[in-house]
């Protein structure tokens, strides 16, 4: 029983990280219909920027995260301006290839700047808490609370503010949004900014329990793709629910089935889902 609860908690933690990454992906997909393969690189750079800020400048963990969000957000905007904007009228295959080009570049850049070593990020929240015989580390609790906080804020932003409604309007119908006077360029840039920021938050929160290295984004972003297919491409609640489903499945699968093949679970899930429903589970109509 204790093992089960412990694993459920782990699943919740992993799921939170997945959800945050998938949210960034799904936002970009919803607005621009680009599967941003470079999102993993943004995630990885987010981890590195936070780490560097803490080590080099000796900044506080939270301040480092804020800087990381800004840096990665701006990087996202830069990507949109320089690459995806010129390609907005090109066939869909071009966006994907361009995104792969960015991914390769950013990974090589990270390796050049920080080296290929695995690094650990120390956290000010290393305490261990014991509740009913189950141990939690503060950092893991922080991940859960932080992720939920970010999700709620994002929800409020999208639903209650004017700019948020503009983003939703554009994901529903680009031309329509343009007709009622929404500046689609600005919204696209803003979306990339948010997407990058979410990746930076996810990486900064999860880095202390994982490691920071140039390839850290590979698996996470692949799983995030699985999640947004699971949750319907472009659907925000779908990304959150899908993230937690995958988190739980993985942590339970690793305990009760096989630890070696736990990374396969996500992909098998995807293969099964797409075999039955080629458009994803909660696909929206229209596209």
């Amino acid at each position: 029983m204790e093992l089960l609860v412990q694993q459920l908690f782990n699943g919740l933690t992993v799921g939170s990280v997945y959800s945050l990454v998938a949210l960034g992906l799904t936002l970009v997909y919803g607005i621009l219909h680009i599967p941003n393969f470079a999102h993993g690189a943004l995630y990885m750079l987010g981890g590195y920027v936070t780490l560097t800020m803490m080590l080099l400048w000796g900044l506080n963990y939270w301040l480092a995260i804020v800087i990381s969000i800004l840096v990665i957000g701006l990087l996202g905007v830069l990507m949109e301006r320089l690459v995806f904007h010129p390609l907005r009228k090109a066939p869909p295959i071009h966006d994907k290839i361009a995104a792969i080009g960015i991914l390769l570049f950013l990974e090589a850049l990270a390796q050049l700047i920080w080296g290929a070593d695995y690094r650990t990020m120390s956290t000010p929240y290393g305490q261990v808490i014991n509740i009913f015989g189950i141990t939690f580390t503060m950092q893991r609790i922080l991940i859960n609370v932080g992720a939920i906080f970010v999700m709620v804020m994002l929800y409020l932003f999208l639903k209650k503010t004017f700019v948020g409604s503009a983003i939703i309007a554009m994901s529903q119908n680009r031309e329509g949004a343009h007709l009622v006077g929404i500046n689609t360029n600005k919204v696209a840039m803003l979306t990339f900014m948010i997407s990058g920021g979410l990746a930076a938050i996810a990486a900064s929160l999860s880095a202390p329990i994982n490691l920071v290295f140039p390839g850290m984004g590979h698996l996470v972003v692949l799983k995030a793709f699985v999640i947004i297919i699971l949750g319907g491409m472009g659907s925000i609640p779908g990304a959150i629910v899908g993230g937690y489903i995958l988190g739980f499945t993985e942590s339970l699968g690793a305990t009760y089935i096989s630890n070696d093949y736990k990374d396969l679970i996500a992909f098998l899930l995807l293969v099964i889902i797409l075999s039955i429903k080629p458009q994803g589970l909660f696909a929206k109509g229209g596209h």
Binding site: L87, A90, G101
Partner: peptide, 15 residues
């Protein structure tokens, strides 16, 4: 680090 050159090359070519 060769991807430092090839990555942007790939992107530029596709644009």
């Amino acid at each position: 680090y060769r991807m430092l050159i090839f990555g942007p090359l790939l992107t530029l070519i596709i644009i």
